[in-house]
């Protein structure tokens, strides 16, 4: 009788342990940038600075003659690159560093495009020349997608 009781208790303990066991899921980095419906235009990697940037744009920025379309809006989102935890041989986007925004609306009135930058997780950042950054962002070639425009 004692043996049966011991067996029952052991089986019960094992069952409870199995049910309550939590799988060890690594800490996934939360998404710090919300694309708000913008589409990826291209991705650029600066190996020297260990950064990767994704250029997003609205429909006008993805269309023909985007550079002269006042409706076009761009966001260049820059992350620090880090080694992938799950595949040695790969870098992956890590901490969010900057979001640069270019809005072409002012060009409708003959003014320069509006440029702004939001900086994150970066104590020492020297803002670059707005005109040069706007030019850089606007002239990046689109990555080729087999289903564009979609």
């Amino acid at each position: 009788m004692r043996v049966i009781n011991l067996f029952t208790v052991a089986a019960l303990a094992f069952t409870i342990a199995s049910c309550t066991e939590k799988k060890d899921i690594p800490a996934i980095r939360p998404f710090a940038f919300n694309d708000s419906g913008l589409h990826v235009i291209t991705t650029v990697i600066n190996e020297k600075d260990n950064e990767v940037s994704m250029l997003y744009g609205n429909k006008a920025a993805l269309g023909q003659n985007a550079a002269s379309n006042p409706e076009a809006a761009y966001k260049l989102v820059t992350y620090r690159e880090q080694e992938s935890k799950f595949w040695f041989g790969s870098y992956i986007n890590g901490e969010l560093l900057r979001v640069e925004t270019v809005n072409m609306q002012p060009t409708a009135k003959g003014q320069a495009p509006a440029y702004s930058v939001d900086v994150y997780n970066q104590a020492a950042y020297t803002p670059a020349d707005a005109a040069a950054r706007t030019q850089f962002i606007q002239t990046l070639d689109r990555a080729w997608y087999p289903c564009d425009p979609y």
Binding site: K23, D24, I25, P26, A27, I28, R29, Q82, E83, S84, K85, F86, W87, S90, I92, N93, G94
Partner: peptide, 16 residues
């Protein structure tokens, strides 16, 4: 299977 800890998906950024 090498990405078993994340359910089989490799390309998730982690807090290092």
């Amino acid at each position: 299977r090498a990405a078993a800890k994340t359910g089989g998906i490799f390309d998730l950024s982690t807090l290092n």
